[in-house]
Amino acid sequence: MAQHQNHGGHHSHGSMKEYVIGFILSIVLTIIPLVLVMNPILSKTATVISILVMAVLQFVIQLVFFMHIREGEKPRYNVQTLILGLVIVFTIVAGSLWIMLFNKY
């Protein structure tokens, strides 16, 4: 396709090193919560908070190392979609808590 010729295969989509670092970091961030849950060394609140922190870090790592959030010709698109994505993620998490916690007590 004519439109394709202009930007075929010249972009760098990250180096091997970046992917390996991202992969290792995301595995580590998966193992830590697993260990915390399997061997309860922290209090319940501390465990929940640390899982949440790991989740947020995982999110950032996925965006930076695999989704290449920093690259691209028009970062404006990236920022727009990222904001919409964050709004929706916030809605899912906060909305669920807001709706469901009422029935907990």
Binding site: T91, I99, M100, N103
Partner: peptide
């Protein structure tokens, strides 16, 4: 496209939740 993500709970009003929800 955006507002449609903010209406889901109307499918289960009868579940019972707070008045503000």
């Amino acid at each position: 496209a955006v507002v449609s993500f903010f209406t889901w709970a109307h499918h289960f009003f009868t579940m019972g939740t707070s008045a503000s929800v």
